[in-house]
Every structure is written in structure tokens, then in C-alpha cells.
Simulated scan of single mutants.
Amino acid sequence: MSRSNQLIVPQASQALEQLKLEAAQELGVQIPADGYYGNVTSRDAGSLGGYITKKLVQIAEQQLSGGNR
């Protein structure tokens, strides 16, 4: 499977995957073992995306403020 999105920092791939797994666990969404998300409901996929975006914004805000909350 090819992806159209390219990471600016390829080393971030592992961190993003970990964030995805944490989000799924927190929200109770089952991550497909084969990596195919075509059978994940739109609601669950949207929840994951929203959660990940929220966490990334929190991380950026912490870095900009110079603190680790």
C-alpha cells in the first residue's frame, strides 16, 4: 500500500504510531492487526484523528511555553 502523505521528519513515524495506539486504547477503538483501516467506522476514525490532533496541539503548546506539564 502506498501513502500519499509524507512525513517531514521520517523519524517521527514511530512516535506517531505510538500516539495512535494510545489514542485507540484511550477511546476503546480496536486497531486492525493488518493495518487496514477500511473497516473502521467513520466515527471511530474521526475520534482517533481528533484525539491525536488534540494531543499534538497540547505537546506544541507545552514546547512553546517551555514547560513540561
Rank of each mutant, 00 (worst) to 15 (best):
M1D: 08
M1P: 07
S2C: 08
R3P: 05
S4C: 07
N5L: 14
N5V: 15
Q6C: 12
L7V: 09
I8N: 08
V9F: 15
V9G: 04
P10F: 02
Q11F: 06
A12W: 06
A12C: 10
S13N: 15
Q14P: 02
Q14F: 08
L16Q: 13
E17K: 14
Q18D: 15
Q18M: 11
L19G: 07
L19R: 12
K20M: 10
K20H: 01
K20L: 09
K20V: 10
K20G: 05
L21H: 02
E22W: 04
A23L: 06
A23H: 01
A23K: 01
A24V: 02
A24Y: 00
Q25W: 04
E26F: 09
L27T: 06
L27G: 01
L27H: 06
L27N: 03
G28A: 12
V29D: 03
Q30D: 14
Q30S: 15
I31A: 08
I31N: 05
P32K: 05
P32H: 06
A33C: 08
A33G: 06
G35R: 03
G35F: 06
Y36V: 14
Y36G: 12
Y36T: 14
Y37C: 13
Y37H: 09
Y37G: 05
G38H: 00
G38N: 00
N39V: 15
N39E: 12
V40C: 13
V40S: 03
V40Q: 06
T41D: 04
R43T: 08
R43K: 05
D44K: 00
D44E: 01
A45H: 05
A45V: 09
A45P: 00
A45S: 09
G46M: 03
S47G: 12
L48T: 03
L48N: 02
G49N: 10
G49C: 03
G50K: 01
Y51M: 05
Y51S: 01
Y51E: 12
I52Q: 00
I52E: 00
I52S: 02
I52R: 00
I52M: 07
T53S: 11
T53E: 14
K54F: 11
K54A: 13
K55Y: 14
K55Q: 14
K55A: 13
L56W: 01
V57C: 09
Q58H: 08
Q58C: 10
Q58K: 12
Q58E: 15
I59Y: 02
I59H: 01
I59G: 01
I59V: 03
A60S: 12
A60E: 10
A60R: 12
Q62D: 06
Q62F: 03
Q63T: 13
L64F: 05
L64A: 14
L64Y: 08
L64D: 13
L64C: 02
S65W: 07
S65Q: 14
G66P: 00
G67P: 07
R69L: 05
R69T: 11
